[in-house]
């Protein structure tokens, strides 16, 4: 029973890591940028969701509002910042470093803006369903209806993404723009627009991750930093190139960390994630699903 419930808890937190990993992979594939500002975009969207919840007390309204807000912020970041950056910094030693530094600066900018609007104190909102674990007979397991809701929501988001990517023209353009931008442009794909759509999808996924994770923690301008790091680890496990890999990588990480928390020590969660990150990068840098040479920037 303990084994089973640890697995379920890991699945639930892993679902959230997967969403964050997905957001990072979407941007990486379309723009070759690891978007460190994703944590900032997600926190801004989560605060907007919080605003909706505190006004209307309706979680089910807040989630889509945050998703749309996240998508808009993502698109805005691409249009306003990343396009400018790509135009201005084309070559030279800074070209490789500039995107990293710009997204890092953006993370700081969004965090402090959020702090100026909502203050630094911890906010919280309740989950729409109970956070108390399911009870079987006399035993109560840590896995709660809310954890189940997290898993279902994440699965729905990912299912929608995979349908868009595999079955629609937009998805085809997105994939084409990511892999062969020049040829895609020749074939009539509006690469810039498609990239911005990729950023919007990523922003939406990050926003959902933020809204889902907050009832289990609390909300503050930097409460999603750790999620960013774990999402990055999940994305790297999955190879950074593959959407499916990101989903699997996040879940693998979530389950792995849940077992370490349950059976080894609560203080080892972060060091283990860090060691996993380094080991994956050293031993199999292309990730569990990546092809050879996937690491090249």
């Amino acid at each position: 029973m303990r084994l089973f419930s640890t697995l379920l808890i890991g699945l639930s937190s892993g679902a959230i890591y997967s969403l964050m990993a997905l957001a990072l992979v979407l941007v990486w594939r379309s723009t070759r940028v690891v978007n460190f500002a994703q944590a900032g975009q997600a926190i801004a969207s989560t605060y907007i969701g919080y605003l909706v919840i505190s006004r209307t007390d309706n979680y089910w309204l807040a989630l889509p509002v945050a998703l749309v807000a996240g998508a808009l912020i993502g698109a805005l970041v691409d249009v306003a910042l990343i396009r400018t950056l790509n135009k201005r910094v084309k070559s030279g030693p800074a070209a490789e470093m500039a995107p990293v530094i710009v997204t890092l600066g953006l993370l700081g900018l969004i965090r402090s803006t959020v702090g100026m609007i909502w203050g630094g104190d911890l906010k919280a909102y309740k989950a729409p369903v109970t956070n108390h674990g399911f009870t079987f007979g006399t035993t109560t397991i840590p896995f709660s209806p809310y954890n189940l809701l997290i898993v279902i929501t994440a699965v729905i988001v990912m299912a929608v993404f995979s349908i868009i990517f595999q079955k629609t023209n937009l998805g085809l353009s997105l994939r084409a723009a990511a892999f062969q931008p020049e040829i895609a442009r020749l074939a009539g794909v509006r690469v810039d627009l498609v990239r911005t759509i990729g950023w919007a999808f990523a922003g939406g996924a990050g926003a959902v991750a933020g809204v889902l994770v907050t009832p289990s923690n609390s909300l503050s301008p930097n409460s999603l930093d750790l999620l960013l790091v774990l999402g990055f680890v999940g994305a790297v496990i999955g190879g950074l190139e593959s959407l499916l890999g990101a989903a699997i990588g996040g879940v693998v990480l979530g389950i792995g960390l849940a077992f370490i928390l349950e059976y080894v020590s609560t203080s080892l969660a972060f060091p283990s994630a860090f060691i996993v990150l380094i080991l994956v990068l050293l031993i199999k840098p292309s990730g569990i699903l990546g092809k050879k040479g996937g690491r090249g920037a």
């Binding site: 940028v33 690891v34 460190f36 920037a297």
Partner: peptide, 18 residues
């Protein structure tokens, strides 16, 4: 020494957060 640009950035960021 074995990591490139964004990977190194992400790894060191993880260190700074954790």
């Amino acid at each position: 020494a074995r990591l490139k640009g964004p990977y190194l950035a992400g790894t060191t960021l993880a260190l700074a957060v954790g």
